[in-house]
Amino acid sequence: MTAGIDVHFARKQDVPALARVLGRAFFDDPVMEWMQPHDKRRARALPRVFSAMARHHFLAGGGVQVARRVGEMGGAALWDPPGRWKQTQAEELRMMPRLLVALGRRSGRGMAISELMKRHHPEEPHWYLAVLGSDPFVRGAGFGKALMESRLRRCDAEGAPCYLESTKESNVPYYMRFGFDVTGELTIPGGGPTMWQMWRPPAG
């Protein structure tokens, strides 16, 4: 544990709180700002987006973890286990209505980002960290570290590598402290921001 932070696997009843935490965590994210530049609309959209992703894809893979201190959720992570990072057609169909409501006419930008990431996703089996975020109100208190260490211990025990895309250049050094290295850059077409591809081999 990190400073009294409890990390555990999320259940369906955790999704609303998880979505709110991630929505606040990614409010100022460059990719999310490009996808929905209007602040009030982005604030409404992001919890719906993360709720749909967690509920209709990540929970089934068993890779959703939340971090709490004294019962209050401060961070969450959405992981895909090896071989499961691609959403099934059924999952995409279940998510689509919520995403369309959340993003409206900006849905096309969301789809373009998703397709870009899919085209450049590594083929080697790995754990995929799709989303990691802590509530801005408790940022720096160790919630992200606790979530990372909890999952990376399992990855190392399995001898499995990990992959992520950092959507903020300022977060690259943070991930490097956990053993990730930059392997490439993805720039979203049409004037979009850059994402940094990062890979971590298993320790030991």
Rank of each mutant, 00 (worst) to 15 (best):
R106S: 15
S51R: 14
M73R: 13
R98F: 04
P47H: 07
E185K: 09
G71W: 08
K118T: 12
R154A: 10
T187M: 11
A77L: 01
G108K: 14
G4K: 09
P173Y: 10
G144Y: 00
E72L: 15
E91H: 07
G83M: 06
I5R: 04
V31H: 13
E185A: 13
W79I: 10
G71I: 09
V101R: 15
S51Y: 07
R20G: 06
P193I: 12
L100H: 11
R11Y: 10
A54T: 12
V49W: 06
D181R: 15
L152D: 06
S150M: 01
Q89F: 13
D6K: 06
F58H: 15
H57P: 04
S107V: 15
E72D: 14
G110I: 10
L22E: 02
V21E: 06
A45K: 10
C155M: 10
G179D: 11
L116D: 04
V138N: 07
M32Y: 05
I188C: 01
G191Q: 03
P37D: 07
A10M: 01
L186V: 06
L46N: 04
E124L: 11
H8V: 14
R44Y: 01
L22C: 05
V172N: 06
V131G: 02
F143I: 02
A10R: 02
F137E: 14
F180L: 06
P125R: 12
C162T: 03
R94M: 11
E72P: 02
C155T: 12
A141F: 04
G23I: 02
S166G: 14
A160M: 15
Q36T: 08
Q65A: 08
C155P: 00
K118H: 13
A67G: 07
F178A: 00
K168H: 06
G204F: 07
G133V: 05
D80E: 09
M95K: 12
A10E: 03
L100K: 13
H8P: 00
W85K: 01
E124C: 04
G63I: 02
P173Q: 08
K40W: 12
F58K: 02
V131E: 09
A203Y: 05
T2F: 09
A45H: 08
G104H: 09
H8K: 13
Q13P: 02
E91C: 09
